[in-house]
Design a protein around this nucleic acid. Sequence first.
DNA 1: ACGGCCTTGACAACCGATTGCCATTCGCTG
DNA 2: CAGCGAATGGCAATCGGTTGTCAAGGCCGT
Lengths: 339, 339
Amino acid sequence: MATQPMAAGRPATIHDIAALCGVAASTVSRALANPDRVNIRTRERIQAAAAELNYTPNSQAKALSSGRTGAVGVLVPDITNPFYFDLIRGTQLQLKAAGYTQLLVDTEESDEVEASTLEQLRKSADGVIVAASRLDDEALADAAARMPMVTVNRDVDGVPAVLIDTPSAMPQALDHLISLGHTSVAYVGGPAVSQSSARRWSALSAAAESRGVEVRSLGPFAPKTQSGAAAADAAVHSGVTACIVFNDLIAIGMLQRLRERGLRVPEDMSIVGCDDIFGADFCNPPLTTMSSPIEQAGRVAVSMLLAQLNPLAGGGNRSRSVMPTHLTVRGSTGPAPAK
Amino acid sequence: MATQPMAAGRPATIHDIAALCGVAASTVSRALANPDRVNIRTRERIQAAAAELNYTPNSQAKALSSGRTGAVGVLVPDITNPFYFDLIRGTQLQLKAAGYTQLLVDTEESDEVEASTLEQLRKSADGVIVAASRLDDEALADAAARMPMVTVNRDVDGVPAVLIDTPSAMPQALDHLISLGHTSVAYVGGPAVSQSSARRWSALSAAAESRGVEVRSLGPFAPKTQSGAAAADAAVHSGVTACIVFNDLIAIGMLQRLRERGLRVPEDMSIVGCDDIFGADFCNPPLTTMSSPIEQAGRVAVSMLLAQLNPLAGGGNRSRSVMPTHLTVRGSTGPAPAK
DNA sequence: ACGGCCTTGACAACCGATTGCCATTCGCTG
DNA sequence: CAGCGAATGGCAATCGGTTGTCAAGGCCGT
């Protein structure tokens, strides 16, 4: 039993291994980190001892001495927004595959929380992935200058970004509505500080102009289902027959409110969402929306960040990556009501 | 400009502060951590210097020397399961409030991933919160013996736990169905390794026996909407008129499948879910389900863990906390079909 | 057989903070 | 005025690794 690794005692260190093998601690360190630097026989002895002692490196100590923490921060404005679920899962999987730990932080839709989190992460993480940043361009560029960063759905000069190309699908959505006979459409906007919302609106209004259709902008609205009620009321009041909505959360809230008010979707009003989140396919009616490979976006963001961290591999460090988006037509859009 | 904290240079350390104040680094450390131990005048000088240098302690170094990491691991089987959203948000908020960092890990429904994560976290976190563990009792108890732990929805001797008391709402759900005329009910089970599912089933079958109703068990099924198809088919084939389902994910999947097969809910089949997740209120029809304060469960779990970590405050360390659950009736349950 | 190169492994400084121990100083009491 | 204890702050070890530097030894070629 003496040979059995003591499961209870405190974890083994490289010094324990060194003592067991009769070498210096530094040799153990090298054997494990830089195998070529050490004789194969010694290395094998050390590896065997490490296995026997059930050794795992102390990440704190490693971080302290090497400067690399092996952790990556992932900042999202709201953990409970389903849009981020797939993103988070994507980053988590890719980070784990690369041996990194994910530090997930909910910034509560607040630029201050975001800024202070970034400052703290500067020491405790090797890099960050910032989704839907609420910071202004300057603050974000500053932060990116201090530590490796990749943004998601936020385009700032000099900061590598993964963009979900929802804007480019806007004309598609509009054409879909036009083909159904709609001529009066509203854009239901997201938070005022959301660059995504601004980009979607400008893509939409440009498309509307080239097609000679009237599109008005409503909002801003917070990205929550509860905001859907106000959005729905505003849409009804504005007299449009169709809405393109900043995201599915608001769109689903609108669906509920319209039903409460006795309005039928899509007979009285058509609704198009964005993001194709969990729930968009089983709400009532199922939501026509813009779909994108979100989990993949998370993975790509991690890859881009890791490329920054380890510039060794000759991968051309792309600074922008655009994820394709397409319109998924479900039940929430239909022919415009007869006048 | 010389007085301005250099935003670019590497972060200030206690040594910088010590040099600026003409004291020893250890004094700085004490002034910041243990203010009584140091003269008030010195302390104030040090605090001013710290503020001026924009000092923030290096958490790695602090962890290394003090043994406390200031981080807490949160393990969930599947990040994309909406049930965990609110839980995660609850832990995140409470941890942040207490100055801890949350390490969120998706264990991918795998006991091996869970075990290895726990082993790693043993060094890099002060404690863990484990939701819906897939480990067997012995392994979990072992792990809990090595580091502070609180489980969620998992009851093992000697391990503090927060339990969502869904089992106690089972009789309520059954009575609801009985009052609607159902006499033949199925329980659609979750993963075989899920203790939650087992507890729900035994509560339900006990209630059924005391009421003289036939209840059969179907499954196991993976906790995903996709599993709903198989579950729905099995339920139809079994001839029951109502199902109580392990969780809302499967229940929502069943709703979709039943619709595909041309069966109406609740006219042909009533469905009761569990958890009242995001989406349960807007699916079609809205789901009758068991509701619980999940976010609060997360907060309670954190409180219990912190009580373990800092035994100072005389809070009686409760080892179990049960969150109340109640039936929320929506549109997916209705009168049993006439024979 | 000898000089030089390369491999191998040891030594020690260092990362940034914590903390036990000790020396100094001050104020107070008898 | 001597004596004593509390308050205060410095020194140095320590946490567990990483990494630069260097010495010893083996191998080669000539």
